[in-house]
């Protein structure tokens, strides 16, 4: 009798990285899976939202126009003007699309039915990082010239000559590999861990529902925790999109500065 109350089914399968692999949607083509579909969806959603909000622009803005314009103003003032400086207007479209793209794809993690943050596949953050990587190196080379830029990176003043042998490889590795890698890894790791966290509580609650009577009640806690963590995740997702854009703006500002 007692066994019936707290009886637990054997065979709970904890979520793992295998939960991030998806079946192809059409046939066998591995190129088109759920994350790719979500990327297309995010582009369509963000594009149509901002087209609609800007189409009937008026002096007295509608609610939609107000929403679109306040996001744009936030990016332009907080990330463009305050960080980059006088030449910021060139970079605002790039920063704005970057922020909106990452934000939309992250928030898919807690939207019902979609429920997968695209950025938890490492390929997508790396792809986004390549854009900002090319941008800030291009800006720096265009501003200082290739020779001076490489010289600035490799040979900083104020140290004896033989030490360059030790320090220059580290400096090159930092500029060319580690800094963009930390940029993409942080976004990826946050989204991956967040999705895994939600999976643990949801799958755990689902598993407890199949068990004995008392454990069925306990599943209520698990599910409510999952719902609470969803809102926590929303904060993390917005924050990560903001930090990614902020760091891109900071690197562009560093490339535009006279000396490193």
């Amino acid at each position: 009798m007692r066994g019936l109350w707290i009886q637990a089914n054997p065979g709970f399968v904890p979520p793992s990285s295998a939960d991030f692999d998806f079946q192809p949607i059409f046939g066998d083509s591995i190129l088109f899976t759920k994350p790719v579909l979500l990327v297309f969806l995010s582009v369509i959603l963000a594009g149509s939202f901002f087209t609609l909000s800007a189409r009937k622009a008026a002096i007295v803005p509608s609610k939609l126009q107000f929403a679109g314009e306040s996001i744009y103003t936030f990016i332009r003032n907080e990330l463009g003007r305050d960080v980059i400086g006088p030449e910021f207007m060139r970079f605002v479209p790039f920063l704005f699309s970057l922020f909106i793209f990452i934000l939309t794809n992250n928030v898919f993690g807690i939207v019902p039915l979609l429920q997968f943050p695209t950025m938890s596949h490492i390929g997508f953050p790396i792809g986004v990082t390549i854009f900002s990587y090319v941008t800030y190196h291009y800006v720096a080379i265009k501003k200082h010239g290739l020779g001076k830029y490489v010289k600035d990176i490799c040979f900083m003043p104020g140290i004896p000559k033989p030490v360059y042998l030790i320090l220059t490889p580290v400096e090159l590795l930092t500029y060319l590999v580690t800094r963009p890698l930390t940029l993409s890894m942080r976004l990826f790791a946050n989204m991956f861990a967040g999705h895994l966290l939600l999976l643990v509580f949801t799958l755990g609650g689902e598993y407890l529902l199949t068990s004995g009577l008392i454990l069925k009640f306990l599943s209520l806690f698990s599910f409510s925790f999952a719902i609470g963590l969803s809102f926590f995740e929303l904060g993390i997702q917005a924050l990560q999109a903001y930090i990614f854009t902020l760091l891109t703006a900071l690197y562009i500002a560093g490339a535009l500065a006279d000396e490193h």
């Binding site: 580290v170 590795l173 930092t174 590999v177 580690t178 800094r179 890698l181 930390t182």
Partner: peptide
């Protein structure tokens, strides 16, 4: 940047 320097 400091984190990147330490890692590299």
């Amino acid at each position: 940047s400091i984190l990147a320097y330490l890692i590299s």
